[in-house]
Write a protein that binds this DNA or RNA. Sequence first.
RNA 1: GGGCCGGUAGCUCAGUCCGGCAGAGCGUCUGGCUUUUAACCAGACGGUCGCGUGUUCAAAUCGCGCCCGGCCCGCCA
Length: 566
Amino acid sequence: MSDEPTADTDRESVDESADASPYTLQRDDDEHRAFWADAVADRVEARDPEEPIVVKGGISPSGVPHLGNVNELMRGYYVAEVLRERGHDVRQVFTADDRDPLRKLPRTLCDLEGELVDLGEVDAGALGRNLGAPYTDIPDPFGCCDSYGDHFSTLIADSADAVDVPIELVSNTELYESGELEDVTRFVLENRDRAREVLSEYQDKVDASYVPFNPICEECGKITETVTDVDLGVEPATVAYRCTDMDAGDRTVDGCGHEGTATLREGKLPWRFEWPAQWKVLGVDFEPFGKDHAEGSWPSGQDVARNVLEIEPPVPMVYEWFTLEGEPFSSSAGNVILVTDVLELIEPAVLRYFFAKDPAKARDFSIERLDQLVDEFDRLEAIYFDEIEADEDETAFAKRVYPLLVDEPRAERVRLPYTFAAVLGMTDDPALREEIARREGHVPDDAPEWAVEGALARVERARTWARRTENEFDYELKRTEIPDHDFDPATEAALAELAEFIEAGHGPEEIQGEIYETAKRYDVDVGEFFGAGYRLFFDEKQGPKLGPFLAKVDREFVVDRLRRER
RNA sequence: GGGCCGGUAGCUCAGUCCGGCAGAGCGUCUGGCUUUUAACCAGACGGUCGCGUGUUCAAAUCGCGCCCGGCCCGCCA
């Protein structure tokens, strides 16, 4: 942290690494990087890591895997990709921290298809009886997976697939049961005095009786906190425990009072030790984490790593949380959105772009204003292909990041502006959509087939967006049935004359003009006359620019509808 | 109480590391597209850079003190 020269070369490595701030993405002597992941990669390389380099993330499979979880995935992914570009072999490991106990009942769950399900629709009683037990020991409420933990781990894996991030999903329970964590667990217990000493700097509750191991009660299956004895002299090593009450959030999970023994595979390390233990066992070189860990888990974690486990902690990076529509993600409050839902609204590349932005800034993911995010992405893409001018910084960022967002940069791609795509979504006729897009100049004449397909795929997404948000683009051509209406005679006569005009065959702008003219001739208020049109075609008071729209819908239908014959 | 991150146009954000004319997109307004009707084009408007203070020829940028929002000091993306 200090620039002062160090006299003792012996201490240099210690000084350099001690108190590593998880916030600073680069040091003073680093060259400036357009993309934060490059700055992180510089620091990972500075460790001179062994191949393969390991990038880790992890979450508790506690419930609906929402967009917040994708943050953890994507932040690691960019660093992994940058390191791969530099010729390194990189593993992106993701732990499902599935030996963690269920602390409270989620109000909302979801099945493997991503359908949200209220807690009341599953066997809530069975879940309630399992409060305090590891996720992997709780039956899957949907009955489709081996356990509650497996169910939601599967969904995490699906999320990673959906954004095309290759991860190795590692079950924490599996690490304990297979014995992979046994040596480090034993080491912590052998050195529990030192462990206590280190952790007591961070947690007041750590006293002389503290034992850094939480056995699973063989009687009731819950994670317990009261270890009464440790015996490392037998094989396998065991701890003796008494199943006591455990604090879990605002409530207490009752212990059953059972006294028994457990092996080191039949329990877990407390989080403050478990995290560094994962670093050691998995050989982690870089780990991003939410800001919640920045001031608690991370300072104690790196201390435990160096002074208990005697390993160098990974390069850290804090990312800010983001909100959904201005509110925190919350499965209990129903403020969640799954990755699969998001991908029905925007292309994967756009979602990936969202997570490429500065991790230090809190952001809002707004479905309402999703068009803004898409516009931003389109701009980045256009800058990448030198189609528009931008300043130095923005250009550098675009050039660096864009190739990481798409499978393959292809200059011939075609993007319809998102809100325009939403307008096209008012009709479900694919040919009509393409025709209007071409007429408006959004599709070049020589655009290849795949590019046109890609452009029109956005129409479906924008249509889904308009429907979901019920916004100003949520109009639907009412083809099958004529909407209820009530016009005065003058309006009816004007509509009849407009029908004749259109039947005779005129262009989009001519029709637009004729709407005004007809209204005037029959002394109908222009606004009301447009309103009548929107009523007939959309069952709404407002809509898209009417002339061009009607000109493109098949003429017979338009004429009949204006005459209110169908 | 102590610590950390953020605060830039109505909105979403770049720019802060490295001090050098305050920027982009959207929105708004005006005009154009044959005549108010949400797509397209042009232009304009829009800012005490959270507040104060120090350093400097020069501060959004560096220092210090505050304010506001969030987070941590139990568990937890």
